[in-house]
Design a protein around this nucleic acid. Structure first.
Lengths: 203, 203, 203, 203
DNA sequence: TATGAATGAGATTTCATTCAT
DNA sequence: TATGAATGAAATCTCATTCAT
């Protein structure tokens, strides 16, 4: 028997669930948000949700994977239009500098993402997946830029590309985590970091 | 009539509960760990736990406050033996460089602490408490060192002490958060940061 | 898509829960009876009960409202077949005279109802609901009969209908409350009351 | 070993506990009030309370017995100063007519008393005790007055003294129970009852 | 596929009572 | 006697997941 509904229909439905789930998780937190919350927000029945996802955990996981993917795609797409390594690093900092960290939406999302990482930290398998993805997508992406800069003569040859990549993402993650605090001078700190980092990498 | 048990007895009991709770939270996470877990680990009855703490949330909060306090006391005590601002910054980096991030104990604790911050982030009142404490204890501590260095002529006068303090703790938090990932080159990154930061602050 | 189950199915289920709850409350008292008791007696799961009622209090309240309604409907229906006010008063006394106060069922019900009233007496909102219902249903019903009798020339015009209504229901409630005592001469007392009351109201 | 404290000391202590307990029960209800509430209000330790009373139930029971006793003593004492049966009945109605039913204190007490009766209604032994006390104290007291009036020629000889006694207390209990309702015209109803009753008993 | 009623394990919290001091 | 810390059974309510329709 052929499928009754098309693949694209299913994909659309899944995305509806995911986006509602993200909103719920952002609002209440992953553990506090309930399937019923998602049902209410999405207007999709509980049974249907379980047709698309095996469990609440799975919704969570897929959400994160999707988000990583999207972020990665946006970054690589935009990076490809840069003409040199310096410009690329510049662009990356500017992406994060231009975020509106005060929006409820963004704050909720940041919290969920970090919540998920901590949640995953207690699950060996999940953590391996996340570590691999982090390395594959983000570390390599940044390390590649460093290497590119070294080859083009823009950057100091003494730099270890992987270490610098970890340096960069640690700073970014550190800064965004702090945005949960009231009055965190987000822009000042990140600007300082940018300046420092640029000086460091340039020959 | 004298009290049935001494204050120190009660203090001891409270600490027993807190340390068991920390172990449970570290193992399973705050939201996932149950009062029954704490009962089992501590050997203290459920009722007794509720005699000492009004709720699970309160246990959590007290735990964090205590930890902040202890960390702060250790840091200030040791910093007071340093002879100049540079030595102080050096000391702070070295404290974090010497942590054994691979120990189960330490990992658990890091996760719990971060979990708690995210949990608190959804609670206005709690967040205000946390923000105030962070500022009072950690930001001021570090900003004070910067100012000291500026007065002694060790540090660049252009630095904004508060921004640099936020810079420092953002890096530290960022680095420690990444330790949840497998193969995170913790020492390399932190060493690089130290070097960079020291260059930046010195005249 | 049609609803999964019909409204009448849900109504039936709710009634099943309510009647089991009434039996449990009658047996042990509202505060002493537990949700688990209701689960056991009804064979309906705890979760299902909470799908139909938000709380134990709500079950209680609905039970009372339903009972008032039913009593009211029976009374009004039968009263409508009476040909004069005297006959109506007669009928009301006879309704209560014909009750089998010795039946376990009836005793349990009486106790629960009174328990509930006392419970409600400590809750402003609940009490207002109950007071309003008492006035709307029972006081007005009886006062209406008095007025009818006054208009038809059967009853003394000096009577205050509302006071007489309160008089009547105070007696009825007083008598039924006493049935909890062993050897309470229920029929004798009520018969005496009826005679006295009839003499009083007639011209 | 002789007792360390005198009987009168113990009696005083017991009364302290009982009066605090009554206040607590009146405020929250017997089932809702906790031993800790009594501890707090009385300033007497939990252990001490259990030295004087075997259980919360026992406190309750003793309270009711004491109250009945006191009421009975006041009534008999005052009745003994009346010169005839009519005056006695008059006095009894007036006692209840002069109650300030709007006082929080009195309302609480009424609720507790009725709560207790309903609670006792589920306990065969307790109910037998209560029934016997009711009959011994209150029914006989009132029936005695009726008999006295019949002998003195004041009252109708057709009256059954016990039935009239039950009639009287049913009305009184009925009226007081209704005082839980907002806007219950307590005085009007009771005045009407008094008038009716007096007419009925007189020759 | 979609629905949502049903399930029941499990979570937090309360509180009468005991008992070592 | 007096104290109040300790106990732990038991209560209410939640919610991820299942499954008949």
């Amino acid at each position: 028997m052929p499928p009754i509904v098309s693949e694209s229909y299913k994909e659309k439905k899944k995305n509806e669930i995911l986006s509602s789930a993200l909103a719920c998780f952002a609002k209440k937190g992953f553990q506090a948000a309930t399937i019923d919350d998602i049902v209410e927000l999405s207007g999709i029945s509980k049974g249907a949700i379980y047709n698309y996802f095996k469990s609440k955990d799975e919704i969570y996981l897929e959400l994160m994977i999707k988000d990583t993917q999207e972020t990665y795609e946006i970054l690589t797409k935009n990076l490809s239009t840069c003409h040199c390594a310096i410009e690329k690093i510049n662009y990356l900092f500017d992406v994060y500098l231009s975020v509106d960290v005060s929006s409820k939406d963004w704050q909720g999302k940041t919290i969920v993402h970090n919540e998920f990482k901590l949640y995953a930290a207690r699950n060996k398998e999940l953590m391996e997946t996340l570590s691999a993805r982090r390395n594959h997508f983000f570390i390599q992406l940044f390390a590649g830029i460093i290497k590119e800069g070294q080859e083009s003569g823009e950057f100091n040859l003494n730099l270890n590309p992987e270490t610098m990549a970890n340096f960069f993402w640690s700073m970014i993650d550190g800064v965004f985590f702090q945005t949960i605090y009231n009055d965190y001078p987000y822009k000042e700190v990140l600007t300082e970091m940018k300046q420092l980092f640029m000086e460091k990498v340039k020959v």
